[in-house]
């Protein structure tokens, strides 16, 4: 049994009378490639918000490498190695990808507050930023303003920013949201090429992508875990067909 990197234990959250997380307990072992699926409104993004600290749970615990982080601020969790990306681009429109990634690296290294040191003196950070951008096929766009990048490139930058924090656990909230089908396969091939010991949980609606890239699938329905299993089991499960695949035709 490999080491559990991230675990939620009976995490609960309600907005008024609406239960958006009902005793959610999941475990991600090191190097996981788990997909989180479920119909719209199942609470997938909410679960990511709870795990990363954008939302505070009403009950339950969240453990990162066995350490209780339930009440840690968002930034503290990131510094411990738990990073997410956003379904809706959450970028720095007037910065270039180079600047954005260098900034994230300097923040990770605790050098961001050194106001007396020229940015150009952070040579290692600039080299590392290039390496990350090249890995995400953004090297040619490194010095173009983010707001002028094509949407697909912006989705890649969303991931590049997360990688710059050197995550041990990476939560990808619909990385291919809004990207045309042919481009989304390319995007997932980039994700697939990430280091093997990085623990990844991703939300995705396209079932062919889910079945190709996920080693395990968590099915979330109405705030609760309906099933957690390997792709073949999920594919043949009648409940999943009914609640998820049935309603997913709208996509």
């Amino acid at each position: 049994m490999s080491e559990i990197m991230l675990a939620t234990q009976s995490v609960r959250k309600s907005f008024g009378s609406l239960e958006v997380a009902r005793d959610v307990s999941i475990e991600l072992p090191r190097g996981a490639r788990h997909a989180l699926i479920g119909p719209n409104g199942a609470g997938k993004t909410t679960l990511i918000n709870l795990i990363t600290g954008q939302l505070a749970p009403d009950g339950g615990r969240i453990l990162l490498e066995g350490v209780d982080i339930t009440h840690a601020p968002v930034a503290a969790r990131v510094r411990r190695g738990l990073t997410r990306t956003f379904q809706i681009n959450t970028l720095f429109p007037d910065l270039t990808p180079l600047e954005s990634v260098v900034m994230a690296i300097c923040e990770r290294e605790g050098k961001a507050a050194q106001f007396w040191r020229p940015l150009t003196s952070h040579g290692d950070a600039i080299d590392e930023a290039h390496e990350i951008l090249a890995r995400l096929r953004l090297a040619d766009e490194a010095t173009r303003t983010t707001r002028h990048l094509p949407y697909g490139k912006q989705r890649l930058l969303e991931i590049a920013l997360a990688l710059a924090t050197k995550p041990k656990v990476l939560l990808l909230d619909e990385p291919a949201a809004g990207v045309p089908k042919d481009e989304s396969a390319m995007l997932f091939s980039v994700i697939d090429a990430l280091p093997e010991d990085m623990t990844i949980l991703f939300i995705e609606h396209d079932m062919s992508i889910v079945f190709t890239f996920a080693s395990r699938i968590i099915v979330l329905v109405a705030g609760g875990v309906l099933l957690e299993a390997d792709p073949d089991t999920v594919r043949s499960d009648p409940r999943v067909r009914e609640v998820y695949l049935g309603s997913a035709h709208g996509h």
Binding site: V74, A75, F86, L91, F92, H122, A162
Partner: peptide
Amino acid sequence: SSFGLSLRGVRENLNRMPAIG
């Protein structure tokens, strides 16, 4: 400086700043 860059980050998108630690 790297500090100035982070200030621009705060101005450009405050929501992302905690998410990059």
